[in-house]
Design a binder for these strands. Sequence first.
DNA 1: CGCCCGCTTGACACGAATCAAAAAGCGTGG
DNA 2: CCACGCTTTTTGATTCGTGTCAAGCGGGCG
Lengths: 239, 239
Amino acid sequence: MHFDACPVAIRMSVMLSMLADGEAHKASSPAVVRNALQRVRSEDHALLPPRTTVFLEGFSRSPQYRVVDGCVATSQTLSDGRRQIIDLVGPGRLVGLGLGDRNRYSAETLGLTRLEPIAEPLSHGDLETALNEMLARSQALTMLLGRKTAPERVASALLDLAGQFGRPARQQKRGAVTFHLFPTRTDLADWLGLTVETVSRCFTRLKKAGLIDFQHSDRVTLLEPLHLARVASGDRPLS
Amino acid sequence: MHFDACPVAIRMSVMLSMLADGEAHKASSPAVVRNALQRVRSEDHALLPPRTTVFLEGFSRSPQYRVVDGCVATSQTLSDGRRQIIDLVGPGRLVGLGLGDRNRYSAETLGLTRLEPIAEPLSHGDLETALNEMLARSQALTMLLGRKTAPERVASALLDLAGQFGRPARQQKRGAVTFHLFPTRTDLADWLGLTVETVSRCFTRLKKAGLIDFQHSDRVTLLEPLHLARVASGDRPLS
DNA sequence: CGCCCGCTTGACACGAATCAAAAAGCGTGG
DNA sequence: CCACGCTTTTTGATTCGTGTCAAGCGGGCG
């Protein structure tokens, strides 16, 4: 196995904390300034461009947000650059929970994303519900990474994302769902413990098998969700 | 990949609920009865033999326990029998949290284990602390399963278990720690997303490299914890 | 003592990673 | 509008790590 020694800072394009500071960063690089100007604030909602770092692993504990629109990826990175995405968070879900006094993971936006800061602290009940959900998702990912094959992982991922980002609009025949795929192939690979090439090959195979369809790489339709679910759980081997 | 279709029930030797029911199960199989007789109750502590199922995935929500002595494994099983151990829980830690109205995972003892039922419900603070710890451990396992090599996984596991089961007694030179290894090679494989053979080979390699030692397969000494930690994090490749 | 089960070791197979290169998008500027 | 350069995705050839299959080994328990 081979990994470039790629410092975290290089992957970072914009940090939310910079945006929040307003005038304090005039000396920033052109790219940072340009992205920062895209920020729109209205009624305490921050509209963030893709690839904005919301907070960074190892830094002091960050505030919590609710994702209103778009998608946030939380991830951890090994010292040699290997990255593991912990979760992909879609509309309605919370980011920044379960941190101690230091962030245990990073968070970045995968598309144009609207975040709502959580004003008053959550009730104990809400917090416990949210933590339970995070735990359940984390355990499902554990099973996926520990025991599933590559096609099973990709099928599982697509079903998960369909649940988070799929429109209830189903003008399509049967249970078909179409949705915007926020993560790139690389993001999916880092989530599923695979490589870009393997993810791409699985997409191709699923498409040829008639289970999914896509014209652009970031817009996917699940043509046979039930069949896909059987692939995801290992009940059917795919081709 | 090939898996025997092995129903969950076959793996189960004793269920805690049976033990608690006292006389209600005279018709049980001889093995179950024999194990059940080993039960000792004193002051609300249950002393359970190895391979006792504390609760089972899919069944209605079980009570919560604190591990006093011994070790409990929590796991999920795929329909075709593939098993993933979610966590190994040692003394002082809690089992049975984060369940909805149905158990999302099973729990079984790996050695002679003393469990203490949690009498009054936990305070919100304690619950949140416990959930946060579970989440942190689950995320560490995610990184391990998604991005670490087999030797890195085994090294990480040994360090984790040393932390949970290692005696503070260090009559040994340097930072060496000896502890009882509750999980079998198969358990470790199911925890680390590997096979028995691979786990065994990694043990052999670590032993030959002088990082660990063991006479019996269930009693391990970490000879070079710092070096082992570097292997675990991928900073050093091991041979 | 001898069976049984867990552990170890070896030979081989296979799935996913790696390396390489072409194809497809996509923003930029002429 | 198209040409250009860069990035992402796809596809192909090959390698490599871990899984699979098989056989021995050893310790505990009946």
